[in-house]
Amino acid sequence: MRTVDAEAAVRLYHLDSDSGATTTLLYGSLAQALQQAALEAEAIQEGLFVQTSNDVVAYLDLIGE
């Protein structure tokens, strides 16, 4: 992920692997998105993605899991 500033504007969303549907959980800062993602159940975390204006990265890849 090219953007590493904790205050960078991001979208945190869940991608359902079965249906392909996306659900936005949060529009906010990277710090807020990481905090929200950590509160989600493990099964949900597997489908979480963080999107900036120029990149998308899986939440578990971002935190190194």
Rank of each mutant, 00 (worst) to 15 (best):
Ile44Ser: 09
Glu42Thr: 11
Ser29Glu: 07
Thr24Glu: 10
Leu48Gln: 06
Gly20Thr: 09
Thr52Pro: 06
Ser53Glu: 15
Ala37Trp: 09
Leu30Lys: 04
Gln45Pro: 11
Leu12Lys: 01
Leu15Cys: 02
Leu62Asn: 04
Ile63Ser: 02
Ala8Arg: 04
Gln45Lys: 13
Leu30Glu: 06
Val57Met: 08
Leu48Thr: 05
Glu65Arg: 09
Glu65Ala: 02
Tyr13Trp: 00
Val57Ile: 08
Gln32Glu: 13
Leu62Phe: 06
Val4Ser: 01
Val56Pro: 08
Ser17Gly: 10
Asp5Arg: 00
Ala38Cys: 13
Ala31Gln: 09
Val57Thr: 12
Ser17Met: 09
Gln51Asn: 14
Asp18Pro: 08
Ala6Gln: 06
Tyr59Phe: 03
Ser29Asp: 03
Ile63Lys: 05
Asp16Thr: 05
Ile44Arg: 00
Ala37Cys: 12
Asp61Tyr: 03
Ala37Val: 04
Leu48Glu: 03
Ala41Trp: 13
Ala43Phe: 15
Val10Ser: 02
Ile63Asn: 00
Tyr59Leu: 02
Gly64Tyr: 04
Ala43Leu: 14
Tyr13Leu: 07
Glu40Cys: 15
Glu7Pro: 04
Thr24Phe: 12
Ser29Gln: 13
Leu62Gln: 03
Ser53Thr: 11
Ala21Val: 09
Ala6Trp: 05
Val50Met: 05
Ala38Met: 14
Ile44Met: 11
Thr24Asn: 12
Ala31His: 05
Ser19Tyr: 11
Thr23Val: 15
Leu25Ala: 10
Ala6Tyr: 02
Met1Phe: 01
Asp16Lys: 10
Ala9Leu: 00
Thr22Ser: 09
Thr22His: 07
Glu7Leu: 01
Ser19Lys: 13
Leu25Arg: 05
Ser17Leu: 10
Gln45Cys: 11
Gly47Ile: 11
Val57Asp: 07
His14Met: 08
Asp18Val: 12
Val10Asn: 02
Gly20Asp: 14
Ser17Gln: 13
Ala41Glu: 13
Leu12His: 04
Ser17Val: 10
Ser29Leu: 09
Ser17Lys: 08
Phe49Asn: 09
Gln32Asn: 09
His14Arg: 05
Tyr59Asn: 00
Ala41Tyr: 14
Asp55Thr: 08
Asp16Arg: 10
Glu65Lys: 00
Ile63Leu: 00
Tyr27Ala: 09
Ala31Phe: 06
Ala21Gln: 14
Ala58Glu: 10
Val57Leu: 08
Leu15Pro: 04
Asp5Tyr: 05
Ala38Gln: 14
Met1Cys: 04
Arg11Ala: 09
Gln45Trp: 11
Leu30Ala: 07
Ala6Pro: 02
Ala31Cys: 09
Gly28Trp: 07
Glu7Ala: 01
Leu12Glu: 00
Thr23Leu: 13
Thr52Glu: 05
Leu12Met: 06
Ala37Thr: 10
Gln51Val: 13
Gln32Pro: 10
Leu62Cys: 03
Val57Arg: 04
Gly47Glu: 08
Leu60Lys: 02
Ser19Thr: 15
Gly28Tyr: 07
Ala33Ser: 10
Gly20Glu: 07
Thr24Ala: 14
Arg2Met: 03
Ala21Leu: 13
Ala9Met: 06
Leu34Pro: 08
Ala43Trp: 14
Thr24Asp: 11
Leu12Thr: 04
Ile44Lys: 04
Phe49Gln: 04
Leu30Arg: 05
Leu12Asp: 05
Thr3Met: 01
Val56Glu: 15
Glu46Trp: 07
Glu46Asn: 09
Asn54Ser: 12
Val57Cys: 08
Gly64Met: 00
Thr3Asp: 04
Met1Ala: 03
Ser17Asn: 10
